[in-house]
Each structure stands twice: as C-alpha cells, then as structure tokens.
Simulated scan of single mutants.
Amino acid sequence: MTIELEEPPLTSDNNQVLKDLFGGTMGGIAQVLVGQPFDTVKVRVQSAPEGMYSGSMDVIKQLVKNEGPFAFYKGTLTPLVGVGACVSVQFSVNEFMKRYYDDKLQGKPLSLSQFFVCGAVAGFANGFLASPIEHIRIRLQTQTGSASGAATFNGPIDCAKKLYQSNGFGHGIYRGLVPTLFRESVGLGIYFATYEALIGRELKNNKNMIRAEIPAWKLCLFGGLSGYTLWIGIYPVDVIKSKLQTDSLTKPNYKGSLSVVRDVFAKTGIKGFYKGFIPTILRAAPANGATFAVFELTMRVLG
C-alpha cells in the first residue's frame, strides 16, 4: 500500500535538518505542557504498590490533598528540556528517513510499511535519549509527601548524580533501556505511519489541497488519533519500563524486564499490564494533537 502525499519533493539541504530539530523541539514543549498532569497520574498508578490507590481519580484526590495542585507538574523541568530534545530527534530522524526514501524511490510515494520503518528508526535513535530522561522524570514524579518534607532527590541534576552513584550507567541512569528501545521503535513506527496515512487520506479526498493547507484542527485530530494507536499498541511495555525505573535503588525487586513480567502477571494477571491506561489515553489526544499541530505549523512558518 502506497500513500500519495500531494506536496513538494522533500529537500535534503543542511538547513532542513535544523528546521526539523527546531520544529520538533516546539512540538515537544507543547506536548509536555499539555500532557504532564496526565503523565504524573499515569506513573503514580503504574508504579504504586498494590492497594495504595483505587484508581486514577484516587491518585488525583490524594495528590491535591497531600501535595497540592502543583504536584501534577513535579519533575516538569526535565521533560520540558528533555522531551523537547526527544521530540526534536523523533521528528528530525523521521523526516531524514522520509527524504532517504524519497531519493531512493525517485519521488514515488512511500508505502505504509516504509513510513513505519521511518518512525521505527526515529524511535530507536530516540530511545537512547528518552530512557535516562524518563528515568529521572519518573523518580521525581513518584516522590511523595508535602513540599516541606524531606525529598530523596532535589531536582533532576541531583537525581542523575544519585542514580549514577547507586548503580552506574547501565543499571542506574539507563535502567529500563531495553523496554524503552522496544517501545520507541514499535510505538513510533505505528505513530508516524498512522499520521501519514491520515494525511494521505485527507489529500486524496481533497485533490486540490496541498499538505500546507490542511487546517490546524485537522492536524490536531490526526495527531490525537496517532497517539491513540501508539499507546494501544505498546502500553504494556511502558508499564514494564515504569516498574523498572521506580524499583528500589538499594534493594531492587527486579533483575530485568522478564522479572517484571513474571511478577505483574503472578499478582494481577493481564490487567496489571494496563494499570494507568485511562489517564494515558485521556492524555494521548490533546498531547499528541498539540505535538503534531505545533510541529507542522512551525515548519510552515520556517518555510
């Protein structure tokens, strides 16, 4: 299956890479500002001991009661900088791969599988950056207690230092790398392929329209739908990653991903791999809609 995109040929000039990086950074910032409260709730539900919370609404109530409304933005500095960098890598590598295929196919339309490969390569590259950033963010998000209470980590830099001091790079800062790479590769392959399929369908239905003329609200809609397919496809892997990255630093319960799988399945069955799914899906549409819309609009401004 090929998807025809009625737009000018992709260019390969050096400035284009910088434009892609900047556009991705803007999209990443939008994603964090919109999605951080949902992500905090998701991480708390995923990583909490059994029985601590009855569900997402209970997390919200306890956060507001015990830590105040600003607790939803705990650890925001790390993702604001980090996710901006991650999304810039995702989009720039994805656009680079699209240009690669455009040259290889001499301007012929890419197939859905080729769009998947573009996203998967972007995801794999991004995984090495996303893993430590998400690990630090999750450690900060899951600190409980009031603002006046003693905190294990006093910010992202302190967190990174303590993770390294406890277990080095591989088992400390980069703990959870393998499931992150799998999640990013498969997830972003689905993510970008879905988005391009929706863009292609829109242009096919409106033959006089070019990509730059698609209205912002439709870009948001397509981005939101792409976010749904992403998370539906890889959510259990994200639970495994979160369990690894919230495990005790001094006396870890898990040796690796398989250890998490066995433990979760033994305690809660299949449903254990979908803890926190509701806030994730609620977050998917606005966060990913904002990401794609801001990226596309930024690229239009940059030319």
Rank of each mutant, 00 (worst) to 15 (best):
L129R: 12
S131R: 06
R137S: 11
R137F: 03
R139K: 12
T142R: 07
T142A: 12
Q143Y: 08
Q143R: 02
S146P: 06
S146M: 09
A150S: 11
A151H: 10
A151K: 11
N154M: 08
N154Q: 13
G155D: 09
G155Q: 11
I157S: 07
I157C: 03
D158S: 06
C159G: 03
K162G: 02
L163Y: 03
Y164I: 11
Y164W: 13
Q165S: 13
Q165T: 03
S166V: 00
S166T: 07
S166M: 01
N167C: 11
F169G: 01
G170A: 14
G170P: 02
H171D: 15
I173T: 01
R175W: 04
L177S: 02
V178M: 06
T180M: 15
L181W: 03
F182W: 14
S185H: 00
V186F: 12
V186A: 12
G187T: 00
G187R: 00
L188S: 10
L188D: 03
F192E: 05
A193M: 07
A193Q: 04
A197Q: 11
L198S: 01
G200P: 03
G200R: 04
L203M: 09
K204C: 06
K204T: 07
N205K: 15
K207G: 10
N208E: 15
A212G: 13
A212L: 13
W217M: 04
C220V: 15
L221H: 01
F222K: 01
Y228Q: 12
T229L: 13
I232Q: 00
G233S: 07
V237A: 10
V237N: 04
D238M: 11
D238L: 10
I240S: 03
K243S: 05
D247E: 10
S248H: 09
L249G: 09
K251N: 14
P252V: 07
G256A: 05
G256D: 14
V260K: 05
R262D: 14
V264H: 07
A266E: 15
K267D: 13
K267F: 07
T268K: 15
I270R: 11
I270E: 01
G272V: 06
F273P: 04
Y274W: 09
